[in-house]
Every structure is written in structure tokens, then in C-alpha cells.
């Protein structure tokens, strides 16, 4: 069948979108990651010079190499940063789930009138700048901040506890920032859950708790998985939270990336770090897609 042009356009737009905003930048980064650092603007070579024609393209490609990736694998800093990012992200995702699930569960059990306001409250923080919210956490967590003052005033502690610039502060920041990404997908699955399924489970001999375990949790699984991926994936590359709330010992790949780009001005290494990060993320992203597909299949 011949496709008419409005249809072509309709299908073409997302392709163009992906091409312009994902594939082209990615190819540029990939190219930079294969070049050598130089002191110039921009700080890498070779640069593609089309004025020399075909000859120029050949020399350009012949100068690209995998040096930076080899360097990446030799310097343990990078490995440690990747591993530490994954670890921090996994732990933070776990805490977000532990707080997010009860929230979503309570919301889905709230009366009809309460649900919309509660949903609003979850989304509300997005209306202020992310940076401002993280800065206010610095105020809350610092040695003279809200928490320490409160605890001192109550006499629980005699001298301030150090929270800011530790991993604890990073976890707090991540859980706070990413909570809506956990709550919303879980809430969506719980909200759709047919209440008569729970009654059926009880009718067939389940206690309230085992009905929750065997039915509610089981059916919320796709939502839980979606929430976990939505937190885990972006947190691995997170830069702002570890650099503002974390300390010198907080090692995350996002921070390394920033340092390579802006402190060292070593764009090729930074690009290699970024490309490798993308490769690591590919695994959870594919798993996430699978999860979404499976869920869609179930709903049919």
C-alpha cells in the first residue's frame, strides 16, 4: 500500500526527533571519545574538515582510535566510580521503594475525595526549581541546619551530627527528589486493582495479610518494577545531588564526568566515560522496556 504524505509525516516526526535529539548528539560524543585531547578550542583533534574532500574524510577516520577507552579500563578510578554509582543508585532505589510503596498504597486506599489532592501533593515539588530544592536541603542538613538545631534543642544530641557532605545526605536527596517517580507508577497499578480480587482471595481462605501478599503485591509488581527503573536509571548518572550534598568521598560517575569535562577539559576522556555509561544503562533500559511490554500485554 502506498503511504500518503500525512501518514509519512506522522511517522517521520518521532524519527526526526530521535535523530536530532538523540542520535546526532550521541554520534558527536562517540566521535569525540575516539579523538585525542589538544589545547585548543574545541579541545580535541582530529576535526572533520570537508574542504579537503574525500581525502580529508579518510585522514579524519584514520586518526580516530580507542586510546581513551583503554585508558578508562586502566585507571581504577573510573571502575570504582561506575561501581559506586550503581551501588548508591541501587541502595537509594531500595529506600525510595520502601517509602514510595506505602505512600502509593495509602493513596490508593484513600477516599475518592482525597486522592486528587494527595496526587497534587506528590507532584507539587516539581513546580519549584530542582536546584533550589537541593540547596534548601543543604540548609536543612548542615551542622547549623534545621535538623541539628531541632535535635540539639530537644537534647537528643549534645553536638551537631554531620549529615551534609556524606553519603547519607546523598541518599536523602535522591529519595526526596525521585520519590514521585516511584509513587506514580505504583499508584497507577494499585488504583486499577479490582477490589473484588482481594475479597475473592479472602473468600478462598486468605487472611488480609496473605491476600495483600499474594494479590496486591503480585499485581503491583509491574508498577514496582517501573518505579524502580525510573529511579535507578537516572540516578546512576546523577550529578547535582552528589556534588551539592555529597562529600569528597562520594564517588559517582556523574561527578567524574563533570570533572573531566570542566575541570580537566579532557573532552575525549569525558566522552568515553559518557559512552560507557550509556552502555551500562542499556541493560536496565532494555529490562524496563520488557517490563512495560509485558504489562501492556496483560491489560489487553
Amino acid at each position: 500500500m502506498q503511504m500518503n504524505w500525512p501518514r509519512k509525516l506522522l511517522i517521520g516526526i518521532p524519527f526526526l526527533w530521535l535523530l536530532a535529539l538523540f542520535l546526532v548528539p550521541f554520534l558527536i560524543i562517540l566521535k569525540i571519545s575516539l579523538s585525542d585531547p589538544v589545547l585548543a578550542i574545541p579541545p580535541y583533534s582530529p576535526r572533520l574538515d570537508l574542504s579537503n574532500g574525500f581525502e580529508g574524510i579518510i585522514t579524519f577516520f584514520s586518526e580516530l582510535d580507542f586510546e581513551n577507552y583503554i585508558f578508562l579500563s586502566e585507571d581504577s578510578l573510573y571502575w570504582k566510580a561506575y561501581i559506586s554509582s550503581i551501588k548508591i543508585s541501587a541502595i537509594a532505589t531500595f529506600f525510595t521503594l520502601m517509602i514510595g510503596f506505602p505512600l502509593a498504597y495509602a493513596m490508593s486506599n484513600a477516599s475518592e475525595n482525597w486522592r486528587t489532592p494527595l496526587l497534587m501533593l506528590i507532584i507539587l515539588p516539581f513546580w519549584t526549581s530542582f536546584l533550589i530544592r537541593i540547596y534548601s536541603w543543604m540548609g536543612i542538613l548542615s551542622n547549623t541546619g534545621l535538623i541539628n538545631q531541632l535535635l540539639l534543642w530537644m537534647g537528643v544530641i549534645s553536638e551537631p551530627i554531620i549529615i551534609l557532605n556524606t553519603n547519607t545526605a546523598v541518599y536523602i536527596g535522591i529519595v526526596y527528589t525521585y520519590l514521585p517517580f516511584m509513587v506514580l507508577p505504583i499508584y497507577a497499578t494499585l488504583d486499577r486493582l479490582d477490589g473484588s480480587l482481594l475479597e475473592a482471595a479472602q473468600d478462598l481462605g486468605c487472611t488480609r495479610f496473605s491476600a495483600f501478599w499474594l494479590v496486591t503485591l503480585r499485581l503491583a509488581k509491574p508498577g514496582i518494577a517501573a518505579g524502580c527503573f525510573l529511579v535507578f536509571i537516572p540516578v546512576i548518572g546523577e550529578f547535582v545531588i552528589p556534588s551539592l550534598l555529597g562529600g569528597s568521598r562520594t564517588l559517582m560517575i556523574g561527578k567524574v564526568l563533570w570533572d573531566e569535562f570542566f575541570a580537566n577539559r579532557d573532552w575525549p576522556i569525558a566522552s568515553a566515560v559518557a559512552v560507557f555509561l550509556l552502555l551500562i544503562l542499556l541493560i536496565p533500559i532494555v529490562l524496563f522496556q520488557r517490563n512495560e511490554e509485558k504489562q501492556r500485554e496483560h491489560e489487553r
Partner: peptide
């Protein structure tokens, strides 16, 4: 006496089959 302790089973109007 809670539902799970009664010698009664119910067939629900919506069937309430466990989808998973």
C-alpha cells in the same frame, strides 16, 4: 467470623479471576 473462616465460597459477579 471473617470470610476466610466460613464454610462458604462466593462466585463474584465480576468473576474476580486472578489475572496473573
Amino acid at each position: 467470623v471473617p470470610a476466610n473462616k466460613r464454610p462458604v465460597n462466593m462466585m463474584f459477579q465480576s468473576y474476580a479471576l486472578f489475572p496473573h
